[in-house]
Amino acid sequence: MALLEVTNLGISFGGLQAVSGFRLSVDSGHLYGLIGPNGAGKTTAFNMLTGMYEPDEGKIILDGVDITGKSPEFISKAGIARTFQNIRLFKRMSVLDNVKVGMHNKVPYGMWHGVLRDGVFRAKEKEMDQRAMNLLEVFGIADKAGHVASQLPYGEQRKLEICRALASEPKLLLLDEPAAGMNPNETIELRETVRKVRDDFGIAILLIEHDMKFVMGICEEITVLEYGKIIAHGDPETVSNDPRVIAAYLGGDDD
């Protein structure tokens, strides 16, 4: 059975059907793309998968657990982590602390251990520091651990956001437009990073992206949304040659 199984998912806002009949099946270790025109409902789908919105209908099963309409807290613990289209870092916290917050439910200890600074506190903090530094190392930003997150240049903020998501040791990572605002070379670098994350951490990745070079170069399977409905599905080759996708999304090949 697939890691993530979504069937017939739908939601409407004030009478407007934002997403309907959305289905998705992501195997573990897979790189999966979700594309479509602006306003097609891709981020809405992400918001339902992460518990930010409660779907009106449909089911979301993660690794055998029904997470439909559950709280973000529950879903995070169940194993889904995400990044945001408009980077949402904890801006005034240090880079290291951003990653440590990501481990909130992975390396837990009670408030009083922290207040009393006992052995539990010291051991857990040490463990977190080590794990966080290792993660930052993977993304090449370990030397910035002490910086305030908002001081990082844009590209590194994107990386840090992925680091923070990975800190919760998810089974499935959702990336919302990870390449937005990056130039072609940075995008290529990001592509390698994403692939590395999948390989090193052995997790499934579902991503929304407009940069077709990026999507086509990395995703094994793609679903295309338009007006909240799936209009195409398949491997990159099939999808990019689909006339409906070209008409609605890619546009003619005139450049």
Partner: peptide
């Protein structure tokens, strides 16, 4: 304390992390 400051900086991100 980190959870508290995380909520201050971005509630939505804090929620998504499982706080």
């Amino acid at each position: 304390g980190r959870a508290i400051t995380a909520i201050r900086d971005d509630e939505i991100a804090a929620k998504s992390i499982g706080i």
